[in-house]
Design a protein around this nucleic acid. Structure first.
Lengths: 349, 349
DNA sequence: TTGTATGCGTTATCAT
DNA sequence: ATGATAACGCATACAA
């Protein structure tokens, strides 16, 4: 491999002149710079990032933490699309990306140490157990860090807008005449808490009373469990007119159950998903769902991290919320119960 | 950051003794080693991979090339699951993973140079344009390289078994009594060529004659285009009894079209997918499809690359085929046309 | 078994 | 505007 020393010899200048010229330092005359750059290209010179990082303490490399809690790992479209956004933005800004695990080589260690070992300038935590002491240690260290969908105290986080998501869904359902709205929510996480709180609050604002039996739990991304919850809802004496699912995949489990009962979507029962994955658009009927702009979440996380790295003094940690939007498909029926609706309106006005 | 020099001072030994002890060299006595290791842990020592790589010319880091041809990028479950397999295996074996683009920092360059810049020990090409001169240059360089689903001359490739995949599908369909088999295949790639060749060969072996009008093209992963092809097939005077789709997602496009025509799967028409993505299992009826073990493909690519890196002299390039298997779902109907079948058999026997 | 000395390729400080 | 030199942190050939 050609190194700057070779170029120096070939050009008859010193090593430091070459280094400066290659880094476009204005200390070096245009003429010399041109000569050196040309020779470097001609010889096929490639810098050595290890030597550079060793000296500069900067690597232009970002760590990426992705621990798959549910074993489907990157297979989850939500995360793989986020990752894609991160990759695009990092490339755009000239940073590389290295996966960081909690081992170094073959021996167990910590995320922070791994990131330090590789000299990462910062770390994006895409998915992890945010209560894991090793994650907490990383976030509380002096390593620039960004989290997605979870906020640590005084640290930047990129959040999908769960609050607004559920609010929009409920308001839309309300305009479509639904009041008997069931909500199958995911397991107990921050995201779930936000969605649930927003669901209840919006219902309250709209004067909708939700019986407890309309609220069910089913783990994210496990269609079978959402299927079970759906069955229970369908068999209720006073069946809901609409079911909100934890995510688009989970809806597939509900769909099976709904069809088993001989019901048709949306004629007999309406449904709403969450995420807006590719699948939601190719299904028929097209799924009404809240689309998370996951690629943008990844891009924003990356650009924020880079800002933080490059302006350590002036950067202010903040919570950044990435809006999604309601994809209005064909799975929510307009309920023509104007009599009752008008009654309520009359009372309120 | 603590460095070996600090440990040396703390232990009252020389730098090189520390280095050797930390690398578990047998030159150093157990006693000294123990003392040094303990002190290192106590001080929270973390090695510096840049300094190490600079010296050893090894990085324990693998490059990852993933260029998304179709702009859905990592969003494709096939690739994201492969990536997951790569990640698991690399972690297992103590290697890190860095994405390699065809730029270095902000300036355009080549994959090879990028990999050299980062000091990668080897590169896995997960998805790329294999006719891109920059990819070819990489593969033909002295950088250890592995490709997935495409083989370069004398280089190791990990291939999903397209030949066997189509053979198994066709044979299965035949045992289910199908002879009017349509095949919607993807755009012209090596993978497609293999599948198509295997399709024709197996049909021939089984004495099945496929009219040209039963063969259609529709780009992978574009349900709409498969829908168009499906429409054409359904409206044929002599409609096929079964349609093989380019992939599971594409089937969704066909499904819509089939339902539009008032046909039911599998009663009125049978269908087979390809890939075996998560979706195929949660659909009802469960899709009959050829499952590609993509996680295993990723794992194997990684372990082969590491073998190649660690045994440069004895390693032999080879084509490794990862078997898939037929997922027998509920979308292929048993055709009870024994009269006709027996006729044929009679002639043959 | 331990220590000394050198160099990996680069940047940065200081001199010229 | 250019050059000499030290230093980054580590591994290793060689010496003791």
């Amino acid at each position: 491999m050609i190194k700057i020393k070779d170029i120096a010899i070939a050009c008859g200048v010193s090593i430091s002149t070459v280094s400066k010229a290659l880094n476009r330092s204005h200390e070096i005359s245009d003429e010399t710079t041109k000569k050196i750059v040309e020779k470097a290209n001609q010889l096929g010179y490639i810098a050595n990032s290890n030597a550079r990082s060793l000296k500069t303490k900067r690597s232009q490399n970002l760590g990426l933490i992705f621990v798959d809690k549910s074993d489907s790992g990157l297979g989850h479209e939500y995360f793989s699309v986020i990752l894609n956004g991160i990759k695009k933005e990092a490339e755009e800004q000239g940073y590389d990306l290295t996966f960081i695990s909690s081992s170094i080589g073959r021996s167990r260690n910590s995320y922070l140490n791994h990131a330090k070992y590789r000299g990462c300038d910062g770390v994006i935590i895409v998915s992890a157990d945010f209560h894991d002491p090793k994650i907490i240690a990383l976030v509380e260290s002096d390593m620039p860090t960004i989290t997605i969908d979870y906020q640590f105290h005084n640290r930047t986080a990129i959040m999908s807008d769960n609050t607004r998501g559920l609010e929009e869904i409920v308001r839309y359902l309300h305009t479509m005449g639904h009041e008997r709205i069931a909500f199958i929510h995911g397991e107990d996480t921050d995201v779930t808490k936000q969605r649930l709180a927003s669901f209840y609050r919006t219902c309250e604002e709209l004067g909708i009373n939700i019986p407890d039996e309309y609220i069910k739990t089913a783990e994210y991304h496990i269609p079978k469990n959402s299927g079970i919850a759906t069955k229970e809802l369908i068999e209720l004496e006073k069946r809901p007119t609409c079911i909100i699912f934890p995510d688009d995949y989970s809806y597939m489990g509900g769909l099976t159950e709904i069809e088993k009962h001989g019901l048709k979507i949306p004629d007999d029962i309406s449904v709403v998903g969450y995420d807006g994955i590719y699948l939601s658009r190719i299904l028929r009927p097209v799924l009404t769902t809240y689309v998370q702009e996951s690629e943008k979440i990844g891009e924003t996380a990356t650009s924020e991290l880079i800002k933080m790295i490059e302006n350590p003094k002036t950067y202010l940690a903040e919570k950044i919320i990435i809006d999604g939007y309601l994809q209005i498909g064909q799975t929510v029926k307009k309920i023509q119960d104007w009599g009752k609706k008008n009654e309520i309106w009359t009372i309120r006005w």
